[in-house]
């Protein structure tokens, strides 16, 4: 128990962050107390600023500080190819691969009736509107390989196909540079299901 209401409040605030239990919260509280006041102020400002400035890109829903994100504004990106991902954090991962030169659409989740997430919550109508403009020729669905991620992919495919868009699902399989023997059974199974004829 802390004897200062201010410290209690701070501990409670830390606990709202994911992965922070009561003990970690206390440790953070004591650390904040040991910091210079200017550093604490900087941190508080950074928190508020980030929250205030960052918003969803109007066209792809990725996080950005402007109306449109840098990727959507970049004229060198191929507008005929669209990659649909579940979370904003998936975008930098794919970007790092350097293998994709098109644009993105971020769903911020996957379909999940039990959590009350339907197409409207994922802004799928906005996505379909983008597709119906006819610029996008190919959509790559890169939602997670979970039951919900797969269901979302099926749903998107059903909706996009009538619009004349070629719908692709990202491939699943073995990690590159790894040994076959270390792959878990599920990954291997999926890799075998998605086998390809060698040309």
């Amino acid at each position: 128990m802390l004897f200062s209401p201010a410290l209690n409040r701070l501990a409670e605030a830390f606990r709202r962050l994911p992965g922070i239990g009561p003990k970690t919260a206390l440790r953070l509280v004591y650390h904040v107390l040991s910091m210079e006041e200017s550093a604490v102020q900087e941190m508080a400002r950074a928190l508020v600023e980030a929250r205030r400035r960052v918003r969803e890109c109007a066209s792809c829903r990725n996080l950005t500080e402007e109306e449109n994100c840098p990727i959507c504004r970049d004229p060198r990106r191929d507008p005929s190819s669209l990659c649909v991902v579940q979370e904003p954090r998936d975008v930098p991962v794919i970007e790092k691969s350097g293998a994709f030169r098109g644009r993105y659409f971020v769903l911020h989740g996957a379909l999940s009736p039990v959590e009350g997430r339907g197409p409207a919550e994922l802004k799928i109508p906005l996505l379909l509107q983008i597709l119906s403009r006819g610029e996008v020729k190919e959509m790559i669905i890169a939602t997670n390989p979970t039951v919900e991620g797969d269901a979302t992919a099926y749903y998107l495919a059903e909706k996009a196909r009538p619009l004349g868009v070629k719908v692709m699902r990202i491939g699943f399989g073995l990690p590159v540079g790894g040994d076959l023997e270390y792959a878990d059974e599920l990954t291997l199974k999926r890799a075998l299901e998605a086998r390809r004829e060698m040309l």
């Binding site: 379909l111 009736p113 339907g118 197409p119 797969d150 269901a151 979302t152 099926y154 749903y155 059903e158």
Partner: peptide, 12 residues
């Protein structure tokens, strides 16, 4: 309106 959402789950 939710009915159209059934098919992806049926496929799974």
């Amino acid at each position: 309106a939710l009915r159209e959402l059934l098919s992806p789950w049926n496929r799974q």
